[in-house]
Nucleic acid binder design. Structure first.
Length: 295
DNA sequence: CTAGGATCCTGTCAGC
DNA sequence: TGCTGACAGGATCCTA
């Protein structure tokens, strides 16, 4: 579930906690979730954390990188030494981000803990209910050769005319499918696709090739704005979130105009938000504000 | 080449 | 209560 803003929030939160720290050991509890060898990581320093779209890259002192993709249900939780058990005082002694569950405050490792990276000062837990996410140790050459990373498009605020150029030939595909395609634009997932389309007043099933240059531009502006707002909200609510009961109060409800608001009133026109299925994904929109063109 | 559906996996929830 | 099917903030593979 984590999309670009959640991943960026994790990057910012984790960076001061593990930068400059040395990995003591890596424990793989689910082989599917960790690709590469773990033995060679002991003693290696973390020098930074990068991000491309929804992918995190933990940069190591020996030029290697641990690529992390949380996919649908991945979460990263850092606990300072002695606070693995969860409970009180987590606010100052832990950081949690990704798919929100009670594991944010639970005792770790838990049932869904797939990998534990241990540092002298604390442990980083990679939890993932559905096992779609992964950590992958990669060399510099491996990164350059990686298909997903190589084909990953630019993010909304830097893509410029590139978005319009990529979708203008697409006669068949819906604009929603295009937004979710990481080779067209990076970082947008199901929530921000719906939110950006609402803000740009574009119907999710509109054929991508039907968008004017102006509409394509507007869509990238709204996508960038809504994700930027979410990053800001994520930073401020994350601490509250961890302190609270776990599953409620994520920043979704702070900004969502349509996502999971089916049956409620559109804040712009007062009409009813509906939920349908587009490109195989649950899709929320306001049929009054977002109208299809005639072709 | 394209677009849509199935698929990977586990858990939750609605409806019987 | 227990079962069943639908669905889930992602991405890829398979099919037509």
């Amino acid at each position: 579930m984590p999309e670009l803003p959640e991943v960026e929030t994790i990057r910012r939160g984790l960076l001061p906690l593990i930068r400059g720290r040395k990995i003591r050991k890596v424990e793989v509890r689910e082989p599917k979730s960790f690709l590469g060898r773990t033995e060679s990581l002991s003693g290696v320093e973390v020098i930074g954390i990068g991000r491309k779209g929804k992918a995190l890259m933990m940069e190591l002192g020996d030029e290697r990188v641990i690529l992390i993709h949380l996919r649908m249900t991945g979460q990263l939780i850092y606990r300072k030494k002695g606070y693995e058990g969860g409970g009180e005082e987590l606010l100052l002694n832990s950081f949690a981000g990704g798919h929100p569950t009670e594991d944010f405050v639970a005792s770790l490792p838990g049932k869904q803990t797939r990998v534990v990276i241990e540092f002298d000062e604390g442990k980083l837990f990679f939890n993932d209910q559905r096992k779609f996410g992964f950590m992958k140790v990669m060399t510099r050459e491996g990164i350059l050769a990686d298909k997903f990373l190589r084909e990953l498009a630019a993010e909304p605020w830097e893509i410029g005319e590139g978005f319009y150029e990529k979708i203008k030939g697409k006669k068949g595909s819906s604009i929603k499918a295009a937004l979710l395609d990481q080779k067209i634009v990076a970082g947008i997932g199901n929530i921000y696709a719906d939110e950006a389309l609402f803000l740009a007043k574009i119907h999710p099933e509109e054929r991508a090739g039907n968008l004017s240059r102006e509409e394509a531009k507007r869509l990238m502006v709204t996508a960038g704005e809504v994700m930027e707002r979410s990053i800001k909200a994520g930073g401020s609510t994350m601490a509250n979130y961890v302190r609270a009961d776990g599953t409620r109060g994520d920043y979704l409800e702070l900004f969502a105009e349509v996502f999971q608001r089916q049956g409620q009133n559109c804040r712009r026109c007062g009409g009813e938000i509906i939920k349908t299925r587009v490109a195989g994904r649950g899709t929320h929109f306001c049929p009054n504000c977002q109208r299809r063109k005639n072709d």
